[in-house]
Design a protein around this nucleic acid. Structure first.
Lengths: 115, 115
DNA sequence: AGATCGAATCGATAGACGTCAATATGAAAT
DNA sequence: ATTTCATATTGACGTCTATCGATTCGATCT
């Protein structure tokens, strides 16, 4: 009798799982990218970026009316965007003016590419 | 005395604010874009996308170990990514396999450009 | 049908988030 | 100095989110 001792598999070996690929995104990188994305992933903050970007610059005084949110709420969202590096703040007299940082916005889009 | 009746301003009129620009991003658009961004704005889900993208496809069975998260937690994140349209799910026998939808990822980057 | 095993759902919990009223801060004008 | 006005901060509240143990669902194999 030939072929003794060889295991007979019923139908198929039910292999799982082939790949074994190394991630290219470290846990720390994922954490920091997620932090920036979270800063942008809010409807009010997206509209904020849109308004400031369209206007070139915007005074904080106009934003509560445009966004239909209270002044503290808008101030809160502005702070988050500034801290995330998406907006620049400049004091002029008693008013605060904001501009978007286009290179940071572009960098966000780029960071998504090789995810 | 020439120039009578003209209002003398102290120094400057303190104008605020010039722009008056119309937003190009509607409230509804901001809402839906934010929803997709929120789906991606999480460190575990970013690594998930990265792993699946690198491997071409991935079996759910491998992911809890790779991510150091429980099976229910990984299942939860996978569901969020599938519902956001970032992952496709395919059942093969008892196993669930996932692939990224590159066009959806690219679209996300694009949506950020004209914000 | 019954057993097995991978994956989804349920239930609970701790922490983060968006919102606003009230108050504090800061800068310019009086 | 005092007043005024724009913005930031604080405190509180309700909602959402990530996580996991326990359970259920579904598909395959015996």
């Amino acid at each position: 009798m030939w072929h003794t001792g060889v295991v007979e598999r019923t139908v198929f070996p039910e292999i799982c799982c082939p790949p074994g690929v190394e991630p290219t995104l470290s846990e720390a990188e994922a954490e920091s990218l997620a932090a920036v994305l979270k800063a942008v992933a809010d409807p009010v903050r997206l509209r904020l970026l849109n308004i400031v970007s369209q206007a070139g610059e915007a005074c904080a005084c106009d934003l509560p009316a445009l966004l239909d949110r209270s002044q503290p709420t808008v101030s809160h969202h502005l702070k988050i965007l500034v801290e995330a590096g998406m907006l620049d703040r400049e004091q002029r007299g008693k008013w605060a003016w904001f501009r978007v940082r286009p290179e940071r916005l572009a960098a966000l889009g780029e960071a998504l590419r090789p995810v």
